[in-house]
């Protein structure tokens, strides 16, 4: 298959599947709560409905407020396309290594937090402030995980990491386990999931992400919500590519390898959705200032993972 075609497949797979993943999590959560819940396709309907509505804009909203949704979606979409999903070695994956990927997500978050401050309401401010606080703890934890993986693989390039872990038997390493744990906490925090934030809340004071985007409506809101869905999928792909790289296609000439890659990727997504749903149903949301302990814990786990790896490599 042509590389350009594969790249296109990668991009379209992300926007096509992201709402389904969110729908799956919601459906499973509803079932675990004893409700029937909306259908799997409900997020698609929601997004389409929002896209067709008009935008209601505050009088003092600036160009930044209007441009941010497009930039955020584009940045997160690009970031997600850099992570190997069904294949490694796509041309665009050289654009950013893991560190740059985290920073690209940081740019998107920067734009979103600014947009939250733009209209000048108290909810926008509280959301932005807390979102940035959570990020300021989650980002270093993420970099520590990257550090650990880079120690093992001697690379921060994602396709290379995935291939290395696929080809080499690194054994079951305690460092990788700690790293996985830290990465999962980061993923929960970055995606505004329970216990860090509640994506379904309607109580203002418990909102973080939702408070920040409170003034958005219509197509802008659709883009922000869509970006959140793609970001969730990005983190699932990331965990899958680093810790469960099985089935990633490496030979592009082989259509069956690509098909297997895509199939396994969908399975991985479904599994991650189930894990998310199970986890979120079994835990309560935390108070905002307890988060520092959770995320600080993730940072220390990442640091410990790096140090364990030193010790085990040297001894």
């Amino acid at each position: 298959m042509r590389p350009a075609l594969l790249e296109l497949l990668q991009f379209s797979l992300l926007v096509a599947l992201a709402p389904l993943l969110t729908g799956l999590v919601r459906k499973l959560k509803a079932r675990l709560n004893g409700r029937i819940g909306p259908g799997l396709l409900q997020p698609y309907r929601d997004l389409l409905r929002l896209l067709r509505k008009e935008v209601v804009l505050a009088p003092n909203a600036s160009w930044l407020f209007r441009a941010s949704p497009y930039l955020i979606f584009a940045a997160i979409w690009l970031a997600a396309a850099i992570v190997p999903t069904f294949a490694t070695g796509l041309a665009l994956s050289r654009t950013a290594d893991l560190i740059a990927l985290v920073a690209l997500l940081g740019t998107a978050r920067f734009a979103l937090a600014l947009a939250g401050m733009d209209v000048g309401t108290s909810f926008g401010g509280i959301g932005s402030s807390r979102e940035m606080m959570i990020a300021s703890l989650a980002e270093p934890a993420m970099l520590m995980v990257i550090f650990t993986v880079a120690l093992l693989v001697r690379s921060t390039s994602l396709p290379h990491i995935a291939e290395y872990l696929l080809m080499h038997d690194v054994g079951i390493r305690i460092s990788l386990l700690l790293g996985l744990l830290a990465l999962l906490i980061v993923a929960i925090a970055e995606n505004a999931r329970i216990p860090v934030d509640n994506p379904a809340t309607h109580l203002e004071l418990t909102m973080v992400h939702e408070a920040m985007v409170l003034e958005y409506s219509g197509r802008h809101l659709a883009l922000i919500e869509g970006a959140a869905m793609v970001k969730l999928q990005l983190y699932v792909s990331l965990v899958a590519a680093v810790f469960f790289p099985w089935g990633l296609a490496r030979d592009f000439g082989d259509a069956s390898a690509v098909a297997i890659g895509v199939g396994l990727y969908v399975l991985k997504l479904a599994f991650a959705g189930a894990v998310f749903a199970l986890f979120e149903t079994s835990i309560a949301k935390m108070r905002v200032f307890r988060l520092a302990e959770l995320l600080g814990g993730a940072l220390l786990l990442g640091l410990l993972a790096a140090i364990f790896l030193y010790v085990s490599q040297e001894l």
Binding site: V55, V56, P59, T121, F123, E215
Partner: peptide, 17 residues
């Protein structure tokens, strides 16, 4: 989005819950 979905826009006071 502007071509196929919607490009309408209305100014109105901030919502702020």
């Amino acid at each position: 989005i502007h071509r196929f979905a919607s490009d309408r826009l209305r100014r109105s006071p901030a919502w702020d819950c």
